[in-house]
């Protein structure tokens, strides 16, 4: 029987793959390909779990995860508000805002820039999530400590990108502003900040994922009895893997939606940039 099942799974895989190569060959149907690939993955997952009787402790089937999501909406919503809205989002706004303001403030001092940039670049590569236990100790178990972790995690990528963006105008453009006898403030507002936007948004997009990671991982070090990180770690301990996967699904959808939202704003703000006009 196992042999037959394996053949069946392989046949489904190959069949859908063949279909996909057909779709990929024609320009009109190309949008189907990623969708079909996703469906194939979920279908294979479901088949493997059901046909081979994989224990739900190891890997629950997509349908049972879906059922769990439907039955535990209130819990998921409570965790979502605690972790994403209170922890990640407030930290994201504070961290990105602080980084942006810092970048504009040190803009006038080449000395500060030369000093802070290498440090910022260095810190951006460090495993910053490691400060989570310290910040949990300082700010307590509730969302404030999670927001603090997020602030520190998003600060440096946004700072480094903004400073790089403020340097992105070329001499010709700045000279033009000078011939208009524009003041420093006018040049900054009308030329350099708009020109910096593609870089700023690059930093903001990197920061979206970091914010979610920071908020969730910080909850592993202590949290009130709600929150996505708390739920993941306790349900793992109780082997309630369907609930863990439900939380992961929420985190994945939120992460993609957050990223998509920032990209949409970027499209509106940097409509003039070549990468947006393709």
């Amino acid at each position: 029987m196992t042999f037959l099942y394996t053949l069946l799974v392989l046949a489904v895989w190959l069949g859908l793959w063949w279909l996909n190569t057909r779709f990929a060959a024609r320009r009109k149907t190309q949008w189907v390909v990623p969708v079909l690939f996703g469906i194939t993955l979920i279908l294979i997952w479901e088949m493997v779990v059901r046909l081979f009787g994989v224990s739900p402790v190891i890997l629950p089937a997509p349908t049972s995860i879906g059922a769990k999501i439907v039955t535990s909406v209130p819990t998921l919503w409570e965790d979502f508000v605690q972790t994403i809205v209170k922890g990640a989002l407030s930290g994201y706004l504070m961290g990105c805002g602080a980084a942006f303001v810092t970048a504009v403030l040190i803009d006038r001092s080449p000395f500060l820039q030369r000093g802070l940039l290498p440090i910022g670049n260095f810190v951006a590569a460090l495993p910053i999530v490691g400060i989570a236990p310290i910040l949990v100790m300082w700010f307590g178990f509730d969302w404030q400590s999670k927001a603090a972790v997020v602030v520190v995690m998003v600060f440096f990528p946004v700072l480094v990108n903004t400073v790089a963006g403020l340097a992105a105008t070329d001499t010709m453009q700045r000279d033009l502003m000078r011939t208009y006898s524009a003041s420093y403030g006018q040049t900054l507002l009308k030329l350099r900040l708009p020109a910096a936007m593609p870089f700023v948004f690059n930093g903001l997009k990197i920061a979206t994922t970091l914010a979610l990671i920071g908020a969730i991982v910080a909850e592993f070090f202590g949290s009130p009895i709600k929150g996505m990180g708390f739920r993941i770690s306790t349900e793992v301990g109780r082997l309630g893997l369907d609930m863990v996967w439900a939380e992961i699904a929420v985190a994945a959808i939120t992460g993609s939606a957050f990223y998509g939202l920032v990209s949409l704003i970027e499209k509106g703000v940097t409509f003039w940039h070549p990468s947006q006009r393709g």
Binding site: L212, I213, I216, V217, I232, V236, V244, I248, A251, A252
Partner: peptide
């Protein structure tokens, strides 16, 4: 798309 998902958070699982 998977880059936008907080993969690190599921490490314990």
């Amino acid at each position: 798309a998977s880059q936008t998902i907080p993969i690190l958070a599921i490490a314990p699982m």
